[in-house]
Design a protein around this nucleic acid. Structure first.
Lengths: 298, 298
DNA sequence: GGCCGGTGGTGCGTTTTTTGCACCGCTTTT
DNA sequence: AAAAGCGGTGCAAAAAACGCACCACCGGCC
């Protein structure tokens, strides 16, 4: 879209922190980029960047402007999507930011199912921790977020909430596998693997351990649930995860048991978008379809 | 603003109904304009005009696009206004659509008072009947509307409502001037001058007359309240108007009496903006100031 | 202190884009 | 049948954007 080129350049300069670096990124001369920005500032009626000895940085006016442009770009995409919708061919693009737990099973299934009936719709999926997911929404980098226990910033508008009890994951034959429901204190007596601090599962575990005057003493701390799933097969340790990211079948060598709700309250898997934003048709429909699928889980 | 030039051309074509006429209006060649539009449609991904034998017309996609652009332009103005605001100099432009009754006294006073404390803010005032005022809001031609008894379309967001009893205006010495409050049936027995049908005052009078099984039989019907005010000085007739547009002083030769609320319920003078829109700083502040002034009226 | 690398800004010739003109094919109006 | 509109197109001219070389400036470093 030609008339938003200036914004692309402004955003590049903002990211690079200097006109020359941005010019390099955008395959253009620094002089040309410099003049574009000067011309824009002139037309806009105010400087957008403050000139520092080592480069440039957005000033408050620039911050306002960039936010305006982001809204504008997202709104234009929505219009294009609506137009494609009324011309009969369901096209569009949906960008989803989601927690790791949804990567192996839930999201692939949902996207594949949606694309079956709407082959023209394309997707981009970003794995994000709960904080980054919300930031992606408010910078319009993602349309939809599906996050476990988000920090719940003001910009996050919840569309659906599904409780998820934390489960314990272990190798077959592990002593804890004999009980149907596990207590946290028993778990902490065994070697355990936990996710790093930015994740909701860890957050809940930390809080619960503190309440029980116990400390989490992980043998391994990781930021990949995929890693943790595989790790318990090698060392006889336990891992923690929410059930939506788990499929255990006979012969897989793994066992899953829920943690008692008395120790660790269930966390919430939240489906949401940016507050007040009107989503493109495709994104709105997909979000709706996600909502139905989540409802069926409970 | 350079990057919205395409929109200016598209809007011109929309208004003119043909590319050649629009090109003439915009002081450009038809071929250049034609190519601009073709290029835009190409980038946008869909045609936005349907080509007719006698010109072009927006198709549904174009309607969506134009609406998007209008929001965008208004939003950009808001950003510019915010920027001017944070740079210390209170500048900006406020556009108001209002009913005729506010033209002689209320609006001039309010605008002058506001400009006393904010000399950098400029104004445009449009006299609009109630339907046109609301249309102006939804096409972003006006920021604020102050209308008597609007039709209340969905886009109109009411910020303040002030009841206004319809008053009867007559020459000194008119027989009706002896009563402090007038009944509608008595008024209709005398020669009367009424506003034309698009106005709120007429609307209320028509409804009330129908309820009383009486018919309005005006000797003159006019669309200018200024005209009607002056007319009663020449013929011994009565006119109807709301008090906010009236100032009667001893020696002016005019008398004003309220209509009984039993016959004609008071109408409402509504202050409003487009639903969901974030106004520029200057407009928002002026609307607030208008609200206070209206509140003081009651 | 002086040099060096990096920054934003500018004058000027060159390249790319946009425009204007003349014209085409078409439909409706006269 | 002619005339008057209309949108669309090829081509040369005009305008805008660009790239290059260069300037002034600042901060760190020898």
């Amino acid at each position: 879209m030609k008339h938003l080129q200036d914004f692309a350049y402004i955003e590049a300069v903002m990211r690079a922190g200097s006109i020359r670096k941005a010019a390099d990124d955008m395959n253009i001369t620094a002089s040309a980029l410099n003049r574009r920005i000067q011309r824009f500032e002139d037309e806009f009626g105010s400087e957008i960047f403050e000139r520092l000895p080592r480069g440039v940085r957005l000033n408050p006016a620039g911050e306002l402007l960039v936010q305006h442009f982001r809204v504008q770009v997202s709104d234009l995409r929505r219009v294009q999507s609506q137009v494609a919708d009324l011309s009969g061919i369901r096209r569009g693009h949906v960008s989803v930011a989601c927690s790791q737990a949804l990567i192996p099973y839930f999201m692939p299934e949902q996207i594949a199912r949606y694309r079956e009936s709407h082959p023209g719709v394309t997707f981009s999926v970003s794995v994000r921790d709960r904080e980054a997911a919300e930031r992606d929404l408010s910078t319009f980098r993602s349309d939809i977020a599906l996050v476990f226990e988000p920090v719940l910033l003001v910009d996050f508008e919840v569309q659906m909430s599904v409780p998820q009890t934390i489960h314990v994951l272990m190798r077959e034959g592990h002593p804890l596998a004999e009980q149907p429901v596990l207590r946290l204190r028993d778990c902490l007596d065994h070697p355990h693997v936990v996710p790093s601090r930015q994740y909701g599962v860890r957050h809940l575990l930390d809080a619960a351990a503190a309440r029980g005057s116990r400390a989490i003493a992980p043998v391994v701390e990781a930021d990949s649930f995929d890693f943790m799933r595989h790790y318990v097969l090698h060392e006889n340790a336990i891992a923690f995860q929410i059930p939506i990211g788990l499929r255990v079948w006979p012969g897989s060598g793994m066992v899953v048991r829920p943690l008692s709700g008395r120790d660790v309250p269930p966390g919430n898997l939240l489906l949401g978008q940016m507050r007040g934003r009107t989503l493109p048709v495709a994104s709105a429909r997909f979000a709706q379809s996600l909502g139905l699928a989540l409802e069926a889980l409970t």
